[in-house]
Design a protein around this nucleic acid. Structure first.
Lengths: 222, 222
DNA sequence: AGATAAACCCCAGTTTTTTTATGGTTTTCA
DNA sequence: TGAAAACCATAAAAAAACTGGGGTTTATCT
């Protein structure tokens, strides 16, 4: 009887208990599954550090948002993912995100390259089991809605550099154009030029910013 | 009892019969599956055209290579896919490829954006059934090896323009650097510059072309 | 091994693209 | 309606990419 060690990090105690309950009753082959939990960045980090000196986790589940959205917190799930990859490269990492926020998905796929990515509305006992098995034997596992976002990105031939992405992102969260200079290392007229360029790329010339954002969202960039 | 119409296009008669056999014995809900076949570009095109005036296919399976690789043929599976998308946008398209040729996968995901992509070594009765169901209800379906290629691409932050891609592709099929000018609209020194640039991007500075090709392959670009 | 071709490297001049500053017009909204 | 923000146009400066011509090194073939 082998043991499969899983760590689940989520700030909602109850959902985490749900995961624990479901995961631990998965049966396959001669594995015994035990699930450890943590409800914050620091707690998760600590558990992973501890695992270095005993048994490393086979799978680490990470919630993208480890805090209520309004609070300004220093670290989120993505940071923990980057850290975990460095500390225990052999552990599989599966991200869980409340909704299919394309910008985040794209960002995490690049920064962490997780072995799995699940949008929470896709998660149920069956898909969780599928994710665990797939990730162990032939990763990656992407849930249906995550695949939808990935598909959009792959089928688009528009390529944006990091400045373009930042502009789109900040516009989408309501940053005013005049305040964009504070977040992007470019002059205001360059930003204006890039916005014009972006609008032509997404076919929203002469339209307002909202039209651009919507188009970029539809194509999976935000 | 509803009817699910499937068209399978493959130049190997026997494999196609295999698909037909497997697909037609899939049982789910109250569907009756019938599989039509075609073994060439023209035959496939004809079947699709005919379907316009009777019942359109629910799913079209397309082999990427419709001809022996050596023969110079005017059209391949990708072309048929592009055509099919135009003629019957409501039909789901699933590509099948002999091996995980990243260059082709990337190209087809952009040009056709199929609802499914399966690498042939991943195909078995179970995955075929999964593909059919997924494609109908929550596309896309990508087989395990296809997902591997997609993952590589998504996790890389290197972006190449079409000239870079052409250079890599031609180098990978053995075209000599001095003959590259014939395929790419650039001067020889520009091509040299780009090769140098590519090598620095892929971390193979001062190494030979093979090292570059290998690195690009590993990252899913070829 | 020697000869030849291909690959590689470097530089200077040119072209193209991107950035920037400036000054203006239009839109938005309190 | 008046002010702030967004938008547009232009020209100059800077950066990046292209090109042609040199050369040296490496690979290939007999």
């Amino acid at each position: 009887m082998k043991t499969l060690r899983i760590l689940a990090v989520d700030d909602h105690e109850m959902t985490m208990l749900g995961y624990k309950f479901i995961l631990e009753r998965i049966v396959f082959d001669d594995y015994n599954i035990i699930v450890d939990t943590a409800n914050s960045f620091d707690a998760g980090k600590q558990k992973i550090e501890d695992s270095l000196h005993s048994f490393k986790y086979d799978i680490i589940f990470l919630d993208v948002q480890l805090f209520p959205p309004n609070e300004e917190q220093p670290h989120n799930g993505e940071d923990l993912g980057i850290l975990a990859r460095k500390m225990v490269p052999e552990s599989k990492i599966i991200f869980m995100s409340s909704f299919s926020d394309n910008y985040r998905i794209n960002s995490i796929l690049k920064s962490v390259d997780p072995d799995g990515y699940m949008v929470k509305t896709d998660i149920d006992p069956k898909s969780l089991e599928q994710a665990v098995k797939t990730v162990l034997f032939e990763p990656p596992y992407y849930s249906s809605k995550a695949l939808g976002a990935i598909r959009k990105k792959m089928s688009s031939d528009i390529t944006l550099d990091s400045n373009d992405k930042k502009i789109l992102y900040h516009l989408s969260i309501g940053t005013k154009t005049k305040d964009l200079e504070q977040h992007i290392e470019l002059s205001s007229s360059s930003i204006e030029n890039r916005k014009r360029h972006l609008k032509s790329l997404f076919g929203t010339e002469k339209e307002n910013d909202l039209a651009l954002i919507v188009a970029a969202k539809n194509r999976g960039f935000i």
